[in-house]
Design a protein around this nucleic acid. Structure first.
Lengths: 239, 239
DNA sequence: AAGTGGTCTAGACCACTTC
DNA sequence: AAGTGGTCTAGACCACTTC
């Protein structure tokens, strides 16, 4: 069942995408939307909030809601729904041929600081994965990942060539809820340069990421280093 | 006037920060919160949503709302409220001595692609600003900024040594609503290396950012290049 | 079957903008 | 003074989890 507010949000989004609503245009008022869709004010408000978070519109109390002037933005405005790369590499590069090179797949006791961030004991086991992800044969990112063994039983090497998130969702029946990230720029080490087909010291976008399930448990600690000129992040931030 | 949902959110946040609610703990149910604060369900829901977006808790339909296990996260969990650097450099480095070096401050016709992104004509004027921002004498970032002259009249060179956002808000009476960003890792040019006191080719975190007012107009196009080992971004993403 | 979060109604009241 | 978005009530109904 699609909630009403999502259907309305999709409708507004579509109006902007196909040009029925142009940059600077004033949207119908909340009350007008209520009549238009035969819904309550809160439902309209919710739809408007969602499109606002996507960066397409902005509201001024007492005045109205307006389409932002995102004319020149190179497609940035229309990542459908969610910001960022919460969807995973496979989703992001759908349409391209996604392959992986696995450099390590083992079960270890993770370093103390990582165990702490995963909320597990120092003598608890975790998978350790090092892999390079490629899109259309071109290496994009190297990932260093730890995942608690107990949360994700039965992970095999072959699963690393597809989407591990898919495995977690479908095979383990778990729900991924959120990620905490730190973003930095770093230089490629000699080993990384070789594995990523780039030069020693070349700039990499590093994401240090802890993933959480809807139970509140951390299921992943991952550092990924993305080749600078083959990867970029997009986001919309509300002031 | 502080809305009720914000007061409740602040209360929940405080309970987690001071340890009254620990990682893995179940929060009171929505209905219990309603009785506790004598408010309606939607108000509680809204407070819970806000804390969820901050990354501290997670809800499971049919089960309850739980404190996430963010024990080991280095303070990341407690950026108060908003993600990211929407607040500006001055705010982010409050407590430190913030200074600026201005390399250019002029009024120009911006390049065509930038004019398009600002939603202005090619023969419209814009400020062009190049400055380095320092915290405690250490250069952190170099910014290349264009701002439409008509939107921000009266900007003077002296304003560039403080917060330009402050000027926009207080002197122009405008409301900043949102930012669209693209994030990359790039290499420092020779000029940048000199200005940022780093080495040629060293990794920089580049933010290409368009800022919007609550009218929907773009007020800023800015590329900022942050020294890799002196700057990091944090964010929380919901799946 | 009982408990819990998610959506929604039909308003009321208020803060703020616009004229 | 009129118009507009923001918050909030007191519920109802539903989807899902837990037992």
């Amino acid at each position: 069942m699609i909630p009403k507010y999502e259907a309305i949000a999709a409708d507004i989004r579509r109006s902007i995408e196909d040009g029925a609503l142009k940059p600077g245009d004033k949207l119908p008022t909340v009350v007008e939307f209520c009549e238009l869709y035969s819904v309550s004010k809160i439902t309209v408000k919710r739809a408007i909030e969602q499109i606002t978070e996507e960066g397409l519109i902005t509201s001024r109390r007492g005045s109205g809601t307006y389409v932002k002037d995102t004319a020149g933005l190179p497609g940035q405005a229309f990542f459908q729904g969610k910001n960022d790369r919460a969807q995973g590499f496979s989703y992001e590069h759908r349409g391209e041929k996604v392959t992986s090179v696995v450099y390590d797949f083992s079960i270890v006791n993770p370093p103390a600081d990582i165990a702490a961030q995963l909320g597990i004991a120092e003598d608890d086991f975790a998978y350790h994965i090092v892999r390079v992800r490629q899109a259309d044969e071109k290496p994009i990112v190297i990932e260093y990942t730890y995942m608690p063994l107990e949360l994700i039983p039965g992970l095999k090497k072959k699963d690393l060539y597809g989407s591990v998130y898919h495995f977690i969702r479908e095979q383990c029946g778990l729900k991924i809820s959120s990620f905490h990230r730190t973003i930095r720029a770093v230089a490629a080490t000699e080993e990384e340069a070789k594995r990523l087909d780039t030069k020693l010291g070349s700039p990499l976008l590093e994401l240090t990421q802890i993933g959480f399930l809807d139970s509140g448990a951390a299921f992943e600690y991952s550092v990924s280093r993305n080749v600078g000129d083959r990867f970029e992040l997009h986001n919309v931030t509300l002031a």
